[in-house]
Nucleic acid binder design. Sequence first.
DNA 1: GGTATTTGGTTTGTATACAATATGTATGCA
DNA 2: TGCATACATATTGTATACAAACCAAATACC
Lengths: 234, 234
Amino acid sequence: MQADSSPKDRVYATLVSNILTLDLRPGADLDETRLCAEFGLSRTPMREVLRQLAGEGYVTLRQNRGAQVSEMSQTSLRAFFIAAPMIYSAILQLAATHRSADQIDTLRAAQAAFCTALDDGDAAKRALANIQFHRVTGDMSDNLYLSPSFNRLLLDHARISITFYAPQDATQQRNIDTARTQHEAIIDAIVARDAQAAGDLAIAHWQLSRDEIEKYVMPGALDVPLGTTARSAG
Amino acid sequence: MQADSSPKDRVYATLVSNILTLDLRPGADLDETRLCAEFGLSRTPMREVLRQLAGEGYVTLRQNRGAQVSEMSQTSLRAFFIAAPMIYSAILQLAATHRSADQIDTLRAAQAAFCTALDDGDAAKRALANIQFHRVTGDMSDNLYLSPSFNRLLLDHARISITFYAPQDATQQRNIDTARTQHEAIIDAIVARDAQAAGDLAIAHWQLSRDEIEKYVMPGALDVPLGTTARSAG
DNA sequence: GGTATTTGGTTTGTATACAATATGTATGCA
DNA sequence: TGCATACATATTGTATACAAACCAAATACC
């Protein structure tokens, strides 16, 4: 999010990245002392970082029992399916309306990075670059009240994507190219200040993700904990 | 939110309440040392409370420059007007769908408290009780991804309501009674699991607030800082 | 043999002391 | 007189030491 000026910011960015990429699994316990040793930071600032992460939904804090990476469940997946199209659509409409010229440059840069990540082939890097793209649209939308939910959605969207990513799946390979194209179209709509088109593209883009996820969410698999499926299979 | 078990929770609850009721004005500087002295708490836990409050949007933290109560501006008011009907409607629809029997009791209790506050006549208490009512609907909706924005909206909704409250205004007096009735209707819709009706009521209920606010937001007053208007006039 | 209780160790929560950074004032120079 | 710079002060950021709460294992009792 912000520049890595202070060591605290570095730790924050690292933890965020590790959580997004499932290097830190949902439900994983975060021992303060261990983190401090790992990052060369004292407990006081580390605790503050954890509290900030908790505020943004990355971790959950339990009284006298330390932090753990926030969980994902089938229940939360259902909530995700309800909230995502609504918020994504609103964000992109507002982005098209409110974007500045500078922000378009930033968005194009994010898209370039996204394409690089696509060619790279690493699911985690791809998800991270994708998030970055959408974060820029979030900045563009400039709505203090939608941002919290939008960011929370992006967090789990990244984690879900990585969870359900199957490298050998030909459909998914095609979908990745579609995503790239959709991003381009989104940029065009935003540049043209076409809120209607941006909103529609948000839905289409969401549909793409949704289809991929739904393939893996079978009614019989209701109690499979999310965040563990794909990694162990790949 | 949670029981006042620890002294930290008490400080948290007090600060939240003071911010919601504008006892702590938007933009007000929060000096750590002073707060510590006031609440009899050390700086370390106090800083953690402030970070939590920052995560939920109550305060903003600036590097090396302390915390201040989050501001409200005309810009944010516009964002509020866009986000509120959307989120409120979604929350109430979901509340009608997901609510449990216990939660209905809680909601009825909140409504009773709201009515008491209405008869009381204190704008701050009223706004607080109103928030409490809607928080219960938020719990009912049980959507992890909409909650952050919903809670952020409730925060500023309370502050805006208090800001633009005019005790002598006959229309507002009537509106207060309307709000009471609408709450009752909302309860009925939720009890009946009628998502459609709940969503419609959310919009109607929002409209009521919107009209009150809009009366005071004139195009010429674009740079009047929110949170200071009504208090000084009353 | 099973359950309850106590006890040791580990981990979190808090307080205080110290370091670093920012602000405001005063002084010197143009 | 105006501005810039240096210094003093206050406030934030960090580290460490201590207290309290939790967890697990071992022992005693039923």
